[in-house]
């Protein structure tokens, strides 16, 4: 008596499993991710010089944000938390070692189509900055963080940040100016 007989209705067409509602409250997370990822990834790229790594770092930071989203969503600026995590990840001891090596290696590799000469120049110039100065420059110019905010994130005095920015600007101007001059000389 085996066999599928009886009242056989058509199978539910186009059925697809629905997502389980998780205990984790993720309300608003997708919107937050969509609004913040690109800007943060750009900052991390400029800081590390590695587009793949920037993607990974920011994605990881968002994963951590999701793990504590119910608390984070109440923060005034959740993006600041994610950015700080992403930079901390980039600065962690083993990551820093890897980043330093990869930073130089990546300069010889095209990760995206057709990097402009200006971008190559800028990234090469940034690579020559000490980490702290590079971080301060990125946070200030790309993250729109004030000196005070950078000082808070970095856990240093405001004067220290000012010093980093001053030295970083000077070094970048020199490197970029030299690159431009060399380019013009050719």
């Amino acid at each position: 008596m085996n066999g599928e007989v009886g009242d056989v209705r058509p199978a539910v067409s186009g059925w697809a499993p629905a997502r389980l509602e998780r205990a984790t409250d993720t309300v608003g997370f997708e919107e937050f991710y969509a609004a913040s990822f690109r800007g943060l990834a750009t900052q991390l790229y400029v800081y590390t010089g590695d587009l793949d790594l920037a993607h990974d770092l920011v994605q990881e930071a968002f994963c951590r944000a999701l793990s504590r989203w119910s608390k984070l969503v109440e923060y005034d600026d959740p993006t600041a938390w994610v950015r700080r995590v992403a930079f901390n990840l980039a600065n962690s001891r083993w990551r820093r070692a890897k980043t330093a090596v990869q930073y130089l290696l990546k300069q010889r590799v095209e990760h995206v189509e057709g990097p402009s000469p200006d971008r190559v120049t800028a990234v090469a110039a940034l690579a020559k900055l000490p980490d702290a100065q590079r971080r301060a420059v990125v946070l200030h110019y790309l993250g729109d963080l004030s000196v005070a905010d950078i000082a808070t994130q970095e856990g240093v005095a405001i004067g220290t940040v000012k010093s980093w920015l001053h030295r970083g600007r000077a070094a970048l101007a020199t490197h970029i100016g030299a690159e431009v001059k060399e380019g013009n000389d050719v």
Partner: peptide, 22 residues
């Protein structure tokens, strides 16, 4: 310079998606 770099790189950012994080 950084604004130019940011503008250019931004077009190459490919978010993995919030669901990937989930």
């Amino acid at each position: 310079v950084l604004t130019d770099v940011s503008r250019e790189v931004s077009g190459h950012i490919r978010p993995l998606g919030a669901q990937a994080a989930v």
